[in-house]
């Protein structure tokens, strides 16, 4: 009595175990299928609601950065990425649910009426343009806020619907470029986010100097010598290299040549 699973003696227990096992199994299966059904219904309801939501709020998603960020966060929380192309999604679980109804094209593009997708792709195109335009000025390293300022300033010229964007949007847009195997990447230096559009690797010294630049605003050769304990020649060489890549600009009107990072020309 104390132990409910204790074996009953005798041969009959053998067949009883088999029966109960199969009963458990069949019950489990029916439970599982019911759950799957419920989930499927829930998911399809959710999909249609999300679809409706995105259509009703298409304007907000486009024009209001904080609304968009919330929307993206919501999508993230439930494990869907608005930017992932359908080829992944529909082949896996989403396709099964709707029996491949959303076959070609992006599931999200259809579900969201292309709004979110297009927004980020448009934005990505703008970001690429800006990075290219300013490459000779900043060597392909530009701060995210600077890009945002430029996107907002230039919106009229290309007549796109990008009204206001947040830094978050810019970074999402850069992420959206990654399937293209592009060389665009987000770099974190200090507490600043930068977009690197030239795939050249920085060596350790250059990285250190760029980091110092974020903190100090500018560096001089002797600052590097004192703070990092570098030899003068080493410090000079690093600055020469960075200058050759347009990653720093020199100011020769200071007492000692000062090197500044053009990624922050806006000083935002």
């Amino acid at each position: 009595m104390t132990n409910p699973t204790r074996r009953t003696p005798g041969l009959s227990s053998l067949s009883r175990t088999t029966i109960s096992t199969s009963q458990y199994a069949s019950h489990g299966a029916s439970l599982r299928s019911r759950q799957t059904e419920t989930l499927a219904t829930q998911l399809s309801v959710f999909q249609s609601l999300l679809h409706e939501f995105s259509i009703t709020h298409a304007k907000d998603i486009r024009s209001n950065p904080s609304f968009r960020a919330e929307f993206a966060r919501m999508c993230n929380a439930i494990g869907v990425d608005p930017l992932v192309s359908s080829h992944h999604v529909s082949d896996n679980e989403k396709g099964k649910v709707k029996g491949g109804r959303y076959g070609g094209g992006s599931w999200w593009a259809q579900a969201l009426g292309s709004t979110v997708n297009d927004f980020y792709f448009e934005l990505a195109v703008r970001v690429v343009e800006i990075c290219r335009e300013t490459r000779s000025e900043n060597g392909g390293l530009i701060s995210v806020p600077e890009v945002r300022t430029r996107v907002q300033k230039g919106k009229g010229s290309i007549g796109s619907g990008i009204d206001s964007v947040s830094d978050d949007d810019i970074m999402r847009a850069v992420d959206a470029l990654s399937p293209l195997g592009s060389c665009f990447s987000i770099m974190k230096l200090g507490h600043n986010m930068l977009i690197r559009s030239v795939p050249k690797d920085l060596n350790e010294d250059q990285g250190t100097v760029l980091e110092a630049l974020q903190v100090m605003g500018y560096v001089t050769v002797s600052m590097l010598q004192v703070n990092l304990g570098w030899e003068r020649a080493r410090a000079m060489a690093v600055m020469e290299d960075l200058m050759a890549d347009s990653l720093v600009w020199v100011d020769r009107q200071a007492e000692q040549s000062e090197y500044w990072s053009p990624a922050f020309i806006t000083g935002g």
Binding site: S246, W249, D251, A254, T266
Partner: peptide, 25 residues
Amino acid sequence: PPHYSFPPFFTLQPTLSTRQSQLSS
């Protein structure tokens, strides 16, 4: 423009490509 508050803007840059962009600014 923002460049005007960027001290190195007043020193013509030795790197050619940087210099071109600076001249155009």
